[in-house]
Computed example of a mutant assay.
Amino acid sequence: MSNPFATPQDAEDAYYDAIEEKDLQALMAVWDESEDVLCLLPMMAAQRGKEAISKVWDPLMQGDIGLDIQTKHLAWIETPELAIHLVEELVKGPGQTEAQPVYATNIFRKSGLGWKLLMHQNSPTPPPPGLHIPGMEM
């Protein structure tokens, strides 16, 4: 069993550290034990349950592609047992000179085992103001 995370931020830091270090075991230790956990990565189907989440992350952790992800918090909603963090992930892959922004929502729940991740979801950021994308009129 992993050490409990004292705060949602501790769990979130451990999540991103595990990705950077390519440590699947550490990444999975952040997730809640519930089979309701959910991970939705860009351009992939939603994965429910720790086994499915582990299977989708395993090739990303085993490959030669390293990711540098810096996070910027945009909004937090926290109660004594639940925390929702909206972050902007600035993701830089191999050969990229500039980081690409991605929005992520991380939802954490507190239990007797400390704070654990229930859901991680990514989505592209909106286009810059003034950029016209056909079919995206509001």
Rank of each mutant, 00 (worst) to 15 (best):
M1V: 09
L82T: 10
K72P: 04
P80E: 08
S2T: 03
N122V: 13
L117C: 06
P42G: 07
V30K: 08
D23A: 07
E98R: 12
L117P: 00
L67V: 13
T71G: 00
Q70D: 15
Q62F: 10
L67Y: 09
D17F: 01
D68S: 07
D13G: 01
I19P: 06
P94A: 15
Q100S: 03
L60E: 03
I69T: 06
G130L: 12
L24C: 02
Q121F: 06
L82H: 04
G114S: 05
L41D: 05
W76C: 04
L67I: 13
K110H: 11
G93T: 12
G66F: 00
Q96G: 02
G93A: 04
M44Q: 12
P59K: 11
Y103M: 14
L24Y: 06
K50E: 05
I65A: 05
R109S: 11
L82R: 09
C39K: 01
P80M: 00
V102K: 06
D17P: 02
E81G: 05
L27G: 00
T79G: 14
L113P: 05
A11C: 15
E51D: 05
L67M: 14
L82Y: 01
I19G: 03
I133G: 09
G93V: 13
L67F: 15
E33G: 08
T97W: 11
P94E: 13
D13F: 04
D23K: 11
M136I: 01
T97C: 12
S54T: 15
Q121C: 14
Y16S: 10
W76L: 11
R109T: 04
E98K: 12
P4N: 04
A45M: 09
L117Q: 03
A14K: 00
E137G: 13
A11P: 09
E20M: 06
D13L: 03
R109H: 11
W57K: 06
P42W: 08
M119I: 14
E21N: 13
P4H: 06
P129D: 09
K22F: 02
T7W: 12
A45I: 00
L131W: 05
Y15F: 15
L27W: 01
A11Y: 00
D64K: 14
A104H: 08
M1F: 07
D13E: 14
G112W: 08
G135H: 02
I53F: 05
Q70P: 03
T71W: 02
D36W: 01
A52D: 05
P4Q: 03
G49F: 08
N3S: 13
Y103V: 02
D23F: 07
H132C: 09
D10H: 10
K116Y: 04
L41M: 04
A29G: 13
